[in-house]
């Protein structure tokens, strides 16, 4: 059941991105920025939470889920440390993803080189 829900929720979020790509002239970078920011806002308003409860990885793996984690982290930070938590919380909540991306990004760049497209 988890898998069906994750598939549908995750797939639908991607379809929204695809429609934006095909129908507007928005570049992928702009779509990613909008998705993350939207995730932060929906997360802060408590709208994304039910989606995460229902779709699990289907809601956390796409980029709005990254925004949701940022917002959730910022709230947790404020709860624990007060105002400074607004600054520490977001990055703390997403530190694993960011550090992994930087570290593996560097590692892969050392190991591999780009190949000519066919």
């Amino acid at each position: 059941m988890d898998y069906i829900r994750a598939f549908i929720v995750g797939g639908l979020i991607c379809v929204i991105g695809q429609i934006l790509m095909d129908k507007t002239k928005l570049t992928p970078a702009r779509i990613l920025v909008s998705f993350v920011t939207l995730g932060v806002i929906l997360g802060a308003l408590g709208i994304y939470e039910p989606l995460v409860k229902y779709g699990k990885a289907g809601a956390t793996v796409p980029l709005p889920g990254f925004g949701y984690s940022l917002a959730k982290g910022a709230f947790k930070g404020v709860d624990e440390y007060g105002l400074i938590g607004a600054f520490t919380g977001g990055v703390t909540g997403t530190a694993a993803g960011i550090a992994a991306a930087v570290f593996f990004g560097y590692l892969m760049a050392i190991i591999f080189s780009p190949k000519m497209k066919k």
């Binding site: 790509m21 780009p114 190949k115 000519m116």
Partner: peptide, 8 residues
Amino acid sequence: FPLEYGGQ
């Protein structure tokens, strides 16, 4: 974009 970037 970089060659390995997954764009469409």
